[in-house]
Design a binder for these strands. Structure first.
Length: 644
RNA sequence: GCGCCCGUAGCUCAGUUGGAUAGAGCAUCUGGCUUCGAACCAGAGGGCCGGGAGUUCGAAUCUCUCCGGGCGCACCA
């Protein structure tokens, strides 16, 4: 509701400036550094100073005395070198906050596609994958909260080298048949088994370079889709995808559709893209040099600092397509530009009834649903792949799809690495070189990493110990449910508290913490607010009790006024986090709101309050804190335990 | 060599797109449960915002340069 005041003020001020000075200028409102300065600050005089060639202070004085009255604004004063500080009419804001809320405007036409997770289906998910999925899922929640229509895609590379390597491990190294592998899948933690096998085969390649022939044989078999190796490939990839979906579901992460590499191959997506690329002369057949016989994109197309010789191979001299080529085709499909589509079949239905579909190659038995064709596409991919993402976007540009190129966004983030201390705690031996580093990169090939499910399990265990010691009267099931919510809250918050381009040096002590700036701290606030409301009994009808004059009287008390402002800023926080593209800002807001509530909790004993009107107002504030805390947590994908 | 990212309190990180006296968590020290739950709160110490130059009313933020660290730059994905 505060944002309504904000836009009204900005509009009035910019209109006045246009009339008075004939200057069109965007008016930004800031939150003053100190609460004593009022609710909003206008730095607009500084901006005008340059154009009007006048001292900012003088302009501010002029504006302050000449501005017409703005509804909801009580007073304004000039401060500092030229700030105009505004104070709001407390009664008016209070009453409008308490009145039943009007629905938030829904924004945007067209569909936004967010692609995240994208884990190779050949081994268990690790903490690096968690950052991707949690970041992507939270951004999806932010978009949906702002009224956008969002489709969540999780791309499955089920025919790539990584799956092939695990198949090689099963077939050549361990002599396992499809029946053997089926038996392993039926047991628990197949993804863990493959984790070790993948490390084993990677080491084997290193020791026996000749065995790399197994890999290319297997890759060919998987692409052809026939024979025992292909069967193994399907078994492994399909089973691991199920493992990944289960792991992500523990964190509350769901998808709409899983497009798979195998269908991109079989439905010949590439052929359509290839025709367009050739026709528009976006790529050309190299006649000489190191790339002779390849179809390449000139370097200047994706990087202005590059020479054309630094071209990127799209089709190899043996006629096969590189990853980038396939990704251009896939990206075109996401925008509905390919002229081809997948078929789909339901893979599973989540507990809330939401289905997730997987691509298939044949119309037989396919469900009639439509995916892709987005207006805007966010690809959540780590920053190491920015070069390749640039090439994909350049492909769209070269095809003259400029609008889509501009709406193709690499939502990049830095990797999660391991702190040397974390390695020591896991019993991993580090080379002297690695020990000297601030962090060590996770490596699936070396089996070096923290598995997602292990981390979740140990978080639940330590949360359970805390919960059990504080709530001995509760049942084991209830204790476990609360511990799970707390564990997920801690994990998701931990992954979100860092801004995207900060490398996370993973540390168990920090990740397992439940105090300070953590998810559980925010949950604790929501739980305590709920407890007060529960103890208070029947609530009054706030809108009739807390009229504007009553609000005006109560809000003369500075503390209450500040808490009212605190619970009124969620919309602004969401909008700011969204426009910055930073889920971390949303996390930080939730934490700050929880801090405000903790202060409120200590300042005002709500239930003991003897003044009836004030008690009503305190109860309303408590309800408001609870609602905004829960809303913020929901956007972060964090639930509120019944107790903790 | 070229490109991108980072350098802010002892440690881990924010910093509202150039604004007022640079913030938070952890750690350390001191204090607070007979109160709606202490997974909390109050207080203290701790800073040449990597160095230097520039841009202007004003710089942690923009430009240049140097230093230190990370990641990319395949007919792998």
């Amino acid at each position: 509701m505060l944002s309504q005041f904000e836009s009204r003020i900005a509009g009035a001020v910019s209109q006045h400036i246009l009339i008075r000075y004939g200057v069109e200028i965007p008016v930004a409102l800031e939150q003053p550094k100190q609460t004593a300065f009022g609710e909003f600050a206008l730095p607009v005089a500084f901006q005008l100073a340059r154009q009007l060639k006048k001292a900012p202070r003088a302009i501010a004085e002029e504006l302050a005395s000449e501005l017409p009255a703005i509804k909801g604004v009580k007073s304004l004063e000039v401060a500092g070198g030229g700030y105009i500080n505004l104070r709001l009419d407390r009664g008016a804001l209070g009453a409008s906050a308490i009145a039943p809320a009007t629905a938030m405007a829904t924004a945007g036409d067209g569909k936004v596609i967010v692609e995240h997770t994208n884990i190779n289906p050949n081994k268990a998910a690790h903490i690096g994958h968690l950052r991707n999925a949690i970041l992507g899922d939270t951004f999806v929640r932010m978009l949906r909260e702002s009224g956008q229509r969002v489709e969540v895609q999780n791309y499955i590379d089920n025919t790539g080298v990584q799956v092939a390597d695990v198949v090689v491990g099963f077939h050549y190294l361990d002599g396992k048949t499809p029946a053997d592998v089926r038996a392993l899948i039926a047991k628990d933690r197949f993804d863990y088994y493959c984790w070790d096998l993948y490390a084993k085969i990677s080491q084997h390649y290193k020791d026996n370079p000749d065995s790399l022939q197994w890999r290319s044989d297997t890759l060919h078999a998987i692409e052809a889709g026939e024979g025992e190796l292909a069967d193994l490939g399907r078994l492994v990839a399909d089973a691991i995808v199920v493992c990944h979906l289960n792991t992500m579901l523990r964190l509350g992460i769901q998808y709409d559709v899983l497009p798979r590499e195998s269908e991109i191959l079989h439905l010949k997506f590439w052929a359509s893209a290839f025709e367009q690329l050739k026709e528009r002369k976006a790529i050309y057949l190299e006649a000489e040099g190191k790339n002779s016989g390849c179809w390449v994109m000139p370097g200047s197309a994706f990087d202005e600092n590059r020479e054309d010789e630094d071209s990127k191979v799209i089709v190899r001299s043996n006629g096969t397509v590189t990853y980038v080529g396939k990704d251009i085709a896939y990206q075109m499909w996401k925008f509905g530009l390919l002229g081809k589509d997948f078929y789909y079949t339901p893979l599973r239905t989540y507990g809330d009834g939401h289905p997730v579909y997987v691509s298939t190659a044949s119309p037989d038995g396919a469900t009639s649903v439509a995916f892709g064709g987005g207006r805007k596409v966010y690809n959540v991919i780590d920053s190491r792949q920015s070069y390749l993402q640039d090439v994909v976007v350049a492909g769209l540009k070269a095809l003259n799809y400029h609008e889509q190129a501009a709406n193709s966004i690499h939502f990049s983030y830095e990797m999660v690495a391991l702190s040397p201390r974390a390695c020591v705690e896991m019993g991993i031996e580090l080379s002297a070189e690695d020990q000297a580093k601030a962090y060590v990169e996770v490596s699936g090939r070396k089996g070096l990493g923290v598995k997602a499910d292990d981390l979740i399990d140990s978080l639940i265990n330590s949360a359970l110990a805390e919960v059990a010691s504080r709530n001995q009267d509760k049942s084991a099931d209830d204790q476990f449910a609360a511990a799970s919510a707390i564990a997920i809250g801690a994990l998701r918050y931990f992954m979100l508290k860092f801004t995207r381009n900060t490398v996370i040096a993973f540390d168990f002590q920090e990740a397992l913490s439940f105090t300070g700036e953590t998810g559980p701290y925010v949950q604790y606030g929501a739980v305590r607010a709920a407890k007060i409301l529960q103890k208070a009994g029947d609530l009054p009808d706030f809108a009739t009790v807390l009229t504007a004059p009553v609000c005006a009287r109560l809000l003369e008390e500075e503390g209450l006024w500040q808490y009212l402002l605190a619970v009124s800023r969620t919309d602004q926080a969401i909008a700011a986090a969204l426009s910055a593209g930073e889920p971390a800002h949303m996390a930080r807001y939730a934490f700050q709101l929880a801090q405000q509530f903790a202060n409120f909790y200590h300042d005002y004993p709500v239930i003991q309050e003897s003044d009836a009107e004030k008690r009503s107002f305190l109860l309303w504030l408590t309800a408001q804190f609870r609602a905004q805390l829960e809303r913020s947590l929901r956007i972060l994908g964090i639930g509120v335990p019944a107790f903790m």
